[in-house]
Design a protein around this nucleic acid. Structure first.
Lengths: 291, 291
DNA sequence: AGCATTCTCTGACCTTAGTCAGAGAACCTG
DNA sequence: CAGGTTCTCTGACTAAGGTCAGAGAATGCT
């Protein structure tokens, strides 16, 4: 009996919502109804602006405002104008609020303990391993790939992370790469893609036109914590698809021979090594693939 | 950096509720509010009694009744007295109800597909594996161990499953074992424990008093689909704890030498082989442990 | 400076989800 | 067949969660 992936996902979904979702609610509902509790927990020990809370929790602004008045009335939070922009308001926990927050945190910890406590050490290790894997893959599967101009804040953040990393590894200095990339990786001949999770960039990559009319993939980067989730391969596939849509028939890229994992990935994806096609001083390997 | 099990559980919890829980609700909420949708889905293509629904979903009887009137009003279900007991009522889907049910099922399938679609084959296989493991272990961790009189319906069901299994394997015939067990495995000298998951018995075991004043564990059984989740070891520990509470200092048990996994479990739990202490014709090994 | 936009808040309103007490029919037990 | 129990239902009620329109202050843009 071979089980379909979707069957497994659905079965787990069911088990999970019934066993943990239900527990979760009963644990969080401590005197206060669920809404205010969740909000209090989300505000967290370092505080947040109303705007952020609205985005993160997806609440109506009127509803959120009312919830905040409630917490304020209980003396758990303080709301005051943001210093840099007085339209926004910052929410912070009071002393009592921090106590309440810690109680919620304890409950959440208790819930987790309730779940692992009945298991033997071996079973517990297996569960932890399975959940960590599932966590990574679920997050990877729900990453959003988005075309962004290289000048967009998230694109800049991603590219900065990329430059920082190759700076650390090879002493690379971006110089005027910022400006050059911004020009070459925009329409009509190029584009830039950022993968975001919870609004944070976790991977990126761009395509630009080479003089001979083929496409070149550049600035490909995957966040440290996201290695091993197939995100690189997925991004690569996405870039190829987008390049094909742009009318390219051949895609090339260069890389450094110390990046063995990246090279393995390119080879798995059907790239073959070719002779040097550019004068990039940092590159040691050159690859090509027909789209 | 060694991560605590509870941290992993909590992180996964967060990822899951944010990414899938939210999706789940938006997928199910198709015109109808969530409550009626869930109920419709739970009734299923084969129908159910009102009682079953109440137990499975943990709803107030008044509330459930009202939800059913709503579905009835939309022409999705029919409610009629149960044939064997006219106090109960059976709910079945109408033609339209089946259509609506199938739409819900499709949505749920779509959701699962959305989740696995972006992954590569290898990643998908890893996710399926991780979720299947997590499913088994989460279910195992949330099993309920309950003292029940051997005559209770669930106890009888569990013991019947046990007899059926050893009947298949060894040709064992219960005979008057039912009556004998029911007497010996009740207070004050004995007891019977049933592990239930969603109200279904998934494991059982009993303790009775031996002539020499030690305790004997009998009728230990774990459901096929639950092997490998550490449930047997947990049940064994539970039986020992309860026996200790009853004042026993020594516990014994017999088994058949073909049940190698059971024997391995007993040895891991600290049991040592002893000489034959009873005249059970089916037994080939005898074990003992000091409490 | 004037105008559009952003951000938060309030008031009015609605749906969903759920609780509780008690009634009435069917069943079980002695 | 009397009395207690089980099962479902109705009516009355409440809390929780959420939507919508518009007001008012602060800011950005030209």
């Amino acid at each position: 009996m071979l089980e379909e992936p979707t069957d497994v996902v659905r079965r787990f979904n069911r088990t999970y919502t019934q066993r943990i979702g239900a527990l979760d609610e009963s644990f969080l509902g401590t005197g206060r109804p669920l809404g205010p509790s969740r909000l209090l927990f989300e505000i967290g020990e370092s505080g947040a602006t109303v705007r952020e809370l609205r985005d993160r929790m997806g609440l109506d602004s009127g509803y959120l405002s009312r919830l905040l008045r409630g917490l304020e009335g209980d003396g758990l939070v303080e709301v005051r104008p943001d210093l840099t922009d007085a339209r926004r308001r910052r929410v912070t926990l009071t002393r009592r609020g921090r106590t309440a927050w810690r109680r919620l945190d304890d409950r959440s910890e208790d819930l987790a303990r309730t779940l692992v406590a009945p298991l033997s050490d071996r079973q517990r290790a297996r569960l932890v391993d399975a959940l960590a894997t599932a966590d990574l893959l679920v997050r990877a599967a729900t990453v959003r790939l988005e075309d962004l101009p290289p000048t967009d804040a998230r694109a800049v953040e991603a590219m900065a992370a990329y430059f920082a990393e190759i700076g650390r590894r090879f002493g690379f200095e971006p110089g005027d790469a910022w400006r050059v990339d911004a020009e070459s990786m925009t329409a009509p001949d190029g584009f830039f893609v950022v993968a975001t999770s919870d609004g944070e960039p976790v991977a990126c990559g761009g395509v630009q036109r080479l003089p001979d009319g083929s496409a070149q993939i550049k600035r490909m980067w995957v966040h440290d914590g996201w290695r091993g989730a197939g995100l690189g391969a997925r991004l690569l596939r996405h870039l190829e698809d987008r390049a094909r849509e742009h009318g390219y028939a051949v895609v090339r890229l260069d890389t450094n021979d110390t990046l063995t994992e990246a090279i393995a990935m390119y080879e798995r994806a059907g790239y073959r090594a070719i002779a040097r096609y550019n004068d990039n001083p940092w590159a040691r390997c050159w690859f090509e693939k027909d789209l």
